[in-house]
Simulated assay, not measured.
Amino acid sequence: MTSLEPVRLVGGTGSPYTQKMVALLRYRRIPYAITWGQPETTCAALCVKVPKPTFMPTFFFEEGGELTAHCDSTPIIRRLEGEHAGRSVLPRDPALAFIDYLIEDFADEWCTKYMFHYRWHLAADADNAGTKLPLSMDVSMPQEQFQQFKDYISQRQIERLWVVGSNEETAPIIDASYRRFLAAMEAHLANQPFMLGRRPGAGDFGLFGQLSQLVGFDPTPREIAHAVAPRTVGWVDRMPDGSG
């Protein structure tokens, strides 16, 4: 079954999972309509129950005649495979499908530690994120509201660094892991353009989501990537729109 109605979602430019899913929708040529903003606000406007927990992006699907909200990207990818034909991102071979799933899970669950650590552990990166994230929601936000939003989100996220295991003791370990990951990406991309061959799988989009922030949003990991992983930087530049 292929639906002609655009898939509706809400997310943020600084959200790696939003970037993951928008790139996937473009690659699969699935019509979509995205709202840049907070999921809770959009859910309230649509009179939809807010999912628990709530993440970006949040998708909206019709179920039993009612609009429902969903925000776990991995099962959403599988759902879209059933609802939209063509340009699948799930390998047919069971062994390759399992490897693709592991790559996606590695991106979603481990690479996000790199992203969150670099974004909020160092003062310069935290100031960058605290400035850009509110303005990505509303570039015309009044200055007083912007400052309140910046202070709130910065404090909230810095206080949550423990969730990804980021602290002074683990910082060198996370940094070393990120550099090993970039080295592996460089070696791999020297031989083929995607993780499992000549076309992207769900794992590619998972990696792209995190790297879109590490290479393009946050200063410290961006500087590292540009210094040691030029192929990866080029790959990230190409991944947002593979619709052609």
Rank of each mutant, 00 (worst) to 15 (best):
L25R: 10
G234A: 08
L80F: 02
S166Q: 05
I153C: 06
S166I: 06
S140N: 10
G14R: 13
Y118N: 00
H84Q: 07
Y27F: 03
T2D: 03
E223C: 02
E66K: 15
D72H: 13
A85D: 14
L133A: 10
L182F: 05
V22C: 07
H121P: 07
Q210W: 01
D108I: 08
Y27D: 03
R198V: 06
K132Y: 10
H117K: 09
I30K: 13
D108F: 05
L161V: 02
E186M: 08
I103W: 14
F194A: 07
V215C: 12
Q213E: 10
N128H: 08
S88H: 04
P16R: 14
Q19D: 10
M21L: 08
T41R: 15
A227D: 10
F55G: 11
V233E: 04
W235T: 05
Q213I: 07
S140D: 11
F60Y: 12
F149K: 12
L25V: 04
T131A: 15
D175Y: 04
L189A: 01
D138P: 07
G209C: 05
R180N: 11
W110P: 00
L122K: 09
E62T: 15
L46C: 00
K20C: 10
Q147N: 00
L90K: 10
M141I: 05
Y118K: 01
N167D: 08
D204N: 01
T13E: 15
G197E: 05
P219F: 02
D127H: 08
K132I: 02
G12N: 14
R198C: 08
P16N: 13
N167W: 06
E109T: 13
E66Y: 13
A225F: 09
D151E: 11
L90C: 02
D204Q: 03
